[in-house]
Simulated scan of single mutants.
Amino acid sequence: MAGNALAFVMTVCFAALVVMSRRHPGMGMAEISAYASLACVIVCWPLMSPVIPSAYELCVLAGFGITSTAIGYLLFLVGGRYIPSGEAGLIALLDVVLGPLWVWLAFGEDPGLATLVGGAMILGAVGWYLWSSYRDRSAAVPA
């Protein structure tokens, strides 16, 4: 139950961050991401294992944090200023849907037919929504 509550709080905070980045375009996203990461460290510190990772493991974790998390969030928040917040949220949720696909492709772990069908339905719905909203916006612009 605590994990679900933390996931909910994280989702609400991320949604607020996306909306704030659109509402206040002058905000520095790198600084805000750094403060958010610091707050996460403070909250999660008591929950950490007392075992300290090796130097190699720390380098791998740092590389993962910099390449996938820091750069990904920074680009998402900067790019999210140029599209509606709802669309940014849909694009962000694609990470959850595509996760099993990447694991299946990279490691051969079978996600199951139901997961693949459900993921395909979600990808189709998001693609249809984004395509139709793009078409509506381009039709509204005079040629």
Rank of each mutant, 00 (worst) to 15 (best):
residue 1 M to S: 15
residue 2 A to D: 13
residue 2 A to T: 03
residue 3 G to F: 12
residue 3 G to C: 15
residue 4 N to I: 06
residue 4 N to A: 10
residue 4 N to G: 14
residue 5 A to I: 05
residue 5 A to M: 12
residue 6 L to D: 09
residue 7 A to S: 01
residue 8 F to R: 09
residue 10 M to Q: 07
residue 10 M to R: 13
residue 10 M to G: 09
residue 11 T to F: 07
residue 11 T to C: 08
residue 11 T to Y: 07
residue 12 V to H: 02
residue 13 C to E: 12
residue 15 A to I: 02
residue 15 A to G: 05
residue 15 A to L: 08
residue 16 A to T: 11
residue 16 A to P: 04
residue 18 V to D: 01
residue 20 M to V: 12
residue 20 M to N: 11
residue 20 M to L: 05
residue 21 S to D: 02
residue 21 S to I: 03
residue 22 R to A: 10
residue 22 R to G: 10
residue 22 R to Q: 12
residue 23 R to V: 07
residue 24 H to P: 00
residue 26 G to T: 15
residue 27 M to A: 15
residue 27 M to V: 14
residue 27 M to Q: 04
residue 28 G to D: 14
residue 29 M to D: 08
residue 30 A to N: 08
residue 31 E to M: 13
residue 31 E to W: 12
residue 31 E to T: 10
residue 31 E to K: 12
residue 32 I to R: 04
residue 32 I to Q: 08
residue 33 S to Y: 06
residue 33 S to M: 11
residue 34 A to G: 14
residue 36 A to T: 03
residue 36 A to M: 09
residue 37 S to C: 08
residue 38 L to E: 11
residue 39 A to H: 14
residue 39 A to V: 06
residue 40 C to I: 05
residue 40 C to H: 09
residue 41 V to L: 12
residue 41 V to R: 05
residue 44 C to D: 04
residue 45 W to V: 03
residue 46 P to W: 01
residue 47 L to M: 04
residue 48 M to C: 01
residue 50 P to R: 01
residue 51 V to G: 00
residue 53 P to A: 02
residue 54 S to H: 03
residue 54 S to E: 01
residue 56 Y to M: 02
residue 56 Y to K: 14
residue 58 L to M: 02
residue 61 L to N: 05
residue 62 A to K: 00
residue 62 A to Y: 13
residue 64 F to G: 06
residue 66 I to H: 13
residue 66 I to E: 06
residue 66 I to G: 02
residue 67 T to P: 00
residue 67 T to C: 08
residue 69 T to M: 13
residue 69 T to I: 12
residue 73 Y to E: 11
residue 73 Y to Q: 05
residue 74 L to Q: 02
residue 76 F to K: 04
residue 78 V to W: 06
residue 79 G to Q: 09
residue 80 G to L: 00
residue 82 Y to V: 06
residue 83 I to V: 15
residue 84 P to W: 10
residue 84 P to L: 10
residue 84 P to S: 11
residue 85 S to C: 08
residue 87 E to V: 04
residue 90 L to Y: 10
residue 90 L to W: 05
residue 92 A to C: 11
residue 93 L to D: 06
residue 93 L to A: 09
residue 93 L to M: 11
residue 94 L to R: 02
residue 96 V to A: 13
residue 97 V to A: 11
residue 97 V to Q: 01
residue 98 L to G: 01
residue 98 L to D: 00
residue 100 P to Y: 06
residue 102 W to I: 06
residue 102 W to Y: 14
residue 103 V to M: 14
residue 103 V to P: 04
residue 105 L to Y: 06
residue 106 A to I: 05
residue 107 F to P: 02
residue 108 G to Y: 09
residue 108 G to W: 10
residue 109 E to P: 03
residue 109 E to C: 05
residue 110 D to I: 09
residue 110 D to Q: 12
residue 111 P to I: 08
residue 111 P to V: 09
residue 113 L to I: 12
residue 115 T to S: 08
residue 116 L to A: 12
residue 117 V to K: 12
residue 120 A to G: 12
residue 123 L to C: 06
residue 124 G to N: 10
residue 125 A to F: 06
residue 126 V to A: 07
residue 126 V to Y: 11
residue 127 G to D: 04
residue 129 Y to W: 14
residue 129 Y to A: 11
residue 129 Y to C: 14
residue 131 W to Q: 15
residue 132 S to P: 03
residue 132 S to G: 08
residue 132 S to T: 14
residue 132 S to Q: 15
residue 134 Y to L: 07
residue 134 Y to A: 11
residue 135 R to N: 07
residue 137 R to K: 13
residue 137 R to Y: 12
residue 137 R to L: 13
residue 138 S to Y: 06
residue 142 P to L: 04
residue 142 P to Q: 10
residue 142 P to K: 06
residue 143 A to I: 03
